[in-house]
Design a binder for these strands. Sequence first.
DNA 1: CGTACCAATCTTGTATGCAAGGCTTGCGTG
DNA 2: CACGCAAGCCTTGCATACAAGATTGGTACG
Lengths: 235, 235
Amino acid sequence: MSKGAAETMQRGIETTLLSAIVEGRLHPGSRLSENQLAEAFEVSRTLVREALARLEARHIISVRPRRGWFVNRPSPEEAAAVFAARRAVEYGFFKTAAPFNDDQIARLKAHIAEERAAIEQGDKAQLTFLMGDFHTRIIALSGNEPLEEVMRNLTARTILISLRYQSSAGALASHRDHCDIADAISRGDMDAAAELSLSHLEDVESGLLMQEPADPLVDLRNTLRLDPVQDGRAT
Amino acid sequence: MSKGAAETMQRGIETTLLSAIVEGRLHPGSRLSENQLAEAFEVSRTLVREALARLEARHIISVRPRRGWFVNRPSPEEAAAVFAARRAVEYGFFKTAAPFNDDQIARLKAHIAEERAAIEQGDKAQLTFLMGDFHTRIIALSGNEPLEEVMRNLTARTILISLRYQSSAGALASHRDHCDIADAISRGDMDAAAELSLSHLEDVESGLLMQEPADPLVDLRNTLRLDPVQDGRAT
DNA sequence: CGTACCAATCTTGTATGCAAGGCTTGCGTG
DNA sequence: CACGCAAGCCTTGCATACAAGATTGGTACG
């Protein structure tokens, strides 16, 4: 904590941006200005660029040469591929993972409780984050860090897809699915969890409005609310 | 090809380094000097740093502040986790993927032929690359780019594990396994492919010498052969 | 009135220079 | 002879300056 102010900053930019995205405060297509970010974080563009490069390597954002950095706006094709990837990973995880112990089950139920609280309180940002993080946290609880990272990146992309194609509905249905999956895990029935996870993802995907939204409108909206980047720490 | 000389360079550094790693020319623990790389590629350190940052985001290399960049040297724990992740991903892929069509099968068999040729010609670098790329290419043939990327990163890390713990044996056994998996896919029996893939990975993992190698000796060897980085384009 | 062109401005791309910290190595001392 | 210490070198960390391209807005002309 004391020494790491410098080294932490670089990773802090990456984390802060990713948080803004997975909490739905940064929308697909949003422009990320190097200058604005540098000003907001009070560092030079060099640091910002390295953080952006890392996020690009994770397929969360992308750069168009001499144009700018943008939060990825997944195409229907990419969206389908990401969902297929998630199905493969989650199904494979449950099918090859050991049953959870009591401590892991307790932590899982704690997450479910968090989801419920966010729903009751209507905390939309927190809910957006939690609904995606559910799947990541399951793998995190298993202790497999590489797979957790994979899942974290895929869920981030899933959130971008949802923000673009979903009418913000289905949160309650998803929560119910999560409860069912958690129950299966609690029973030690990982096979059931695998199947439930599969159908859950299929339901979520088929609930999306997969027609390409009118681009100009989306771009305009994003242009008009560039502020969330600064997030209350404006000059 | 024509315009992209600049933008390509940045990605070219990343790709070149990754190729050197997955072909076994850069060993785990190797130091990657920003200055040497900048000289080798005839660019400034800025470009090199961004490429290195991207590779770090992919968990291929890592930086120790004020010390240097190093090719990752996976610990036994990390190695186990990476193998577990691969098992989950590959098993899940086969279990959720559609059977391959004739064209995909033909391309798959072409890869098998490449492996055989590399074995017969004793091209060790090519073989190291192909043995890992087999699994990535299967997913690539399915057309799922996100999962392909996941697999590419995991296999790169697997190669680092093999380079560190494997006595370079088992190539023939792995090739046989690959043939079996390809046969199952050709028959359209993806379930069999899933199971074969699982046992294949377990065999490979259990074939590793999982005791921590003597560190000083390894470091010394790597220090004495820093040259592969420059790869014949020295001043 | 519409269109084509041109310049100003803003964006990212890249190089360079300086700062700070760690490692090595040689020397001095107990 | 062993141990401690300090100076110099080499590394990365970061900021700044400059270069090149793209967009936008205005203007002149058909």
